[in-house]
Design a protein around this nucleic acid. Sequence first.
DNA 1: GCGTCGTCCTGCGCGC
DNA 2: TGCGCGCAGGACGACG
Length: 265
Amino acid sequence: MPELPEVETVRRMLAPVVMGCRLLGLEHDDPARYAAAEAAVGRRVRALRRRGKYLIFALEGGLELVAHLGMSGSLRLDEGTHTCARLEFEGATVFFNDPRRFGRLRAVPAGDYRTLPTLARMGPEPLSRAFTARVLEERLGRTRRPLKVALLSQEPVAGLGNIYADEALWRARLHPERLANALAPDEVRRLHRAIRAVLRRAVELGGSTLGDGVYARPDGEPGYFQIEHAVYGRAGEACPRCGQRLERLVLGGRSTHFCPRCQVR
DNA sequence: GCGTCGTCCTGCGCGC
DNA sequence: TGCGCGCAGGACGACG
């Protein structure tokens, strides 16, 4: 599923293709999901940014075209088998491929995210200088939810989804059911370091492409971070750190993978 | 205001 | 072989 590393990979590959180009047309098969994007047609792309898992086309005239890839969406330069929308740019066509149809495309006045509450409340970018252990501690302290649930909310830090939340918690040796506001300062520092390390490495490898193959880069090639997953999707296998059998539980309705021995409750 | 839960949607794997 | 069921997931609205 597209989380920060996957969306960043898409951004890096699409930016040179669409930068400075005018959006000539938008075709889609679902007004509920894509009609709100039609206001973007006719405008030129000034920049392609990423915020958490959102991809933001900054357009001339103070408008932004905000894309969220949902859990299975990809923006591609070739037509896939599940094309839901087609963005016709000067010189290139970008296909919104989304088998499970959770993705969204919406045009909003620049910076006005009232219709996108998760984006409006989003925490700092994890790979930016604004994301410090102190900031993480303050934002985790606002909620009594389990750590895993808090991280998925995007409020303590932007961009983590089910895969990278599990991987970061394993790296930080923190149990996913620990309450977010009850961490010791050194535990917050471990989590801060783990989040940055996991995401940095995943960006390097182009994100994760799972067996279901739903995520791919714009050129159709897969990412490779899944090879380095320590816990995600590995319940029943040995913990790479201590050898204990990895377990799975459901938190916030999401499957959660962890080591019951080295992730301290 | 906060936390939890159901809903959206489709492909895939499993069991019968 | 083919059918039906359950599961997977991010965001968001409804509800307590």
